[in-house]
Design a protein around this nucleic acid. Sequence first.
DNA 1: ATCAACGTGCGACAATCTGCCACATTCATG
DNA 2: CATGAATGTGGCAGATTGTCGCACGTTGAT
Lengths: 183, 183
Amino acid sequence: MDTDSLALRFLIVDDDETFSRVLSRAIKRRGYETAVAGSAEQALEMLQTFTPDLATLDLKMDGASGITLIPRLKALNPDIRILILTGYASISTAVEAIKLGATDYLAKPADTDQILAKLNATEPDPDIEIADKPMSVGRLEWEHIQKVLTEHDGNISATARALGMHRRTLQRKLQKRPVREEH
Amino acid sequence: MDTDSLALRFLIVDDDETFSRVLSRAIKRRGYETAVAGSAEQALEMLQTFTPDLATLDLKMDGASGITLIPRLKALNPDIRILILTGYASISTAVEAIKLGATDYLAKPADTDQILAKLNATEPDPDIEIADKPMSVGRLEWEHIQKVLTEHDGNISATARALGMHRRTLQRKLQKRPVREEH
DNA sequence: ATCAACGTGCGACAATCTGCCACATTCATG
DNA sequence: CATGAATGTGGCAGATTGTCGCACGTTGAT
């Protein structure tokens, strides 16, 4: 369908390729036009030919932080809605982001529904409002652990340290739930 | 020195009496005129005779949250600088506070210098440093709970249901202090 | 080969935490 | 005022976690 002129343009800036791909597909399926950038620099290039109406930005990437994009995006489109989405969330960066004009701020992991819910907060679309249940604490923890574990190349000791959790406990958690996905 | 007409008026709203007293003295010593309220309600009364230029608000108090004071304070003095100061800091309340117009947000414990520094900071800087470690599981859980709690307007029972967690357990978790963010 | 440093898997036990049930209040509403 | 919904506590048995300790593998340097 070429509703090009009508479809809202959605920019995803994240260096986690898997994450970007999954999110991009989920968002396209809902009728948005999407663009994905793997770094702030790459995003800046894209902005010369792509003016987004919505955007999700990661903070921790190679090169510049997504936060630096906020002023550029606002300058290009004052009505843009920006969601900061990061696995390295902190109160201080959240405060900065909002002050700079971000619409909202979420810590990863977050599912697509939550992401869109935050971005649509002001949109006249009272249709798909209250269907979402938050992730259970259990699943949230699981995804977080997997992510950090991957970042440490499967090193359990290092992961436990990074997570401020005891190695023994991590071990037990990993035993109980062999890697499986569901929904 | 009676620079009454020149001295900036500083309002402290916190139910921790000791904390308020110490902070009040430290701030007076630096030439501000101070007023202390132990609750949001009490603060509202004071506003009839005291128009602050600066304020620190606590979030978790008996009665209304300090966050509810933000609009009132802004209405009374659009140039007021408001710092949220709480022992139960979370990203979701920080985001909400900043959106409502708070100047900044700090987690207790914080010393007088930090407090005044935040209140006097002028411009946000996009070059704020990003944490090098991801959040601990404990911290992530706290943030998630706070987010859901905020989405349910502070309703504990509803939050517990949404989280698939026993209400009693949620209550106990909420009473504890959040895990400190480290670096 | 040997030593040192590190990561891993697992047993055991105490300290905590959770899921549940009960009960007294408080609060908004019909 | 009756009623349903929330909330703050207390108590308990059972599940989970924090710690220690120990036995192996690996890897690198001596």
